[in-house]
Amino acid sequence: MSWKRERYESHEGAVGVLLADGTEPGPVSFDMGSGTYFHESTDWWVYTGELRRPTATSMRGRCACGWRGEREFPIDWAKVDRADLAAFDVSGPQRDWEVHLDEVEARSVPLPLDVADLLKRLHKRLDELVDDHPLTVLRAVGELETTVDSFALVAARYVSGEKDGAVPRVAAALGTTEKAAGTLLRRYRYLDF
């Protein structure tokens, strides 16, 4: 089970676990039979202590960006129904992750209201057209891609001209990870027309 928020794909959230000593365990490996492939999982419910797996004593929110929630929530394994894992209350870690995403979003660069409104209206209009006029939507998307490419190239080159700190600054401004920001800058900086 993971949590996602639109426009923040690099911030996928999930339940993380802690052992009794306060450490976060590594992935649990599952031998699926003969062969060299071992499935790995970091799902909270695999840390039961059974079959020589580590025993998680508490859970917290975690994010793909590396963030970990400060609050810990105890796990009572007697109350975990293996047949219905979704019934176990993980709302505390999820709320902490949502607060983390709210903070990421608050630090990101706001869009001017007129641009945000224009994008919202464009999205709505394309949604109205897509079922009956898919070719029109494809034409509009092509026009948008041309516009995006030309402005993204200029903006990425301006930002990349800053020797130090461009990638961390872009990551914070866009609400993404440094890895994703670096990929975005490289993609837009070297567009060929």
Rank of each mutant, 00 (worst) to 15 (best):
K4R: 15
Y8E: 02
E9Y: 09
E12V: 08
L19A: 00
E24H: 07
F30G: 13
D31T: 01
M32Y: 01
G35N: 06
Y37T: 11
H39M: 14
E40V: 13
T42Y: 02
W44Q: 01
T48W: 07
G49Y: 05
E50P: 01
E50I: 02
R53D: 09
T55P: 02
T57F: 02
R60T: 15
R62C: 15
A64F: 05
G66T: 08
G69R: 13
E70G: 04
E70M: 02
A78C: 04
A78R: 10
A83P: 00
D84I: 00
D84W: 02
L85H: 06
A86E: 11
A86W: 04
A86T: 00
D89R: 03
V90E: 02
G92W: 07
G92R: 08
W97H: 11
E98A: 14
E103M: 13
V104P: 13
A106H: 15
D114H: 08
V115I: 10
L118Q: 12
R121L: 04
D127T: 09
E128F: 08
E128Y: 11
H133F: 15
A140K: 07
G142L: 05
G142A: 05
G142T: 13
E143P: 00
L144W: 07
L144G: 15
D149G: 05
D149C: 11
D149Y: 01
S150Y: 14
S150W: 13
R157D: 10
Y158G: 06
K163V: 05
K163E: 11
D164A: 15
D164F: 10
V167N: 06
V167Y: 06
A171Q: 12
A172I: 07
T176I: 15
E178T: 06
A180W: 02
L184R: 15
Y190R: 14
D192G: 10
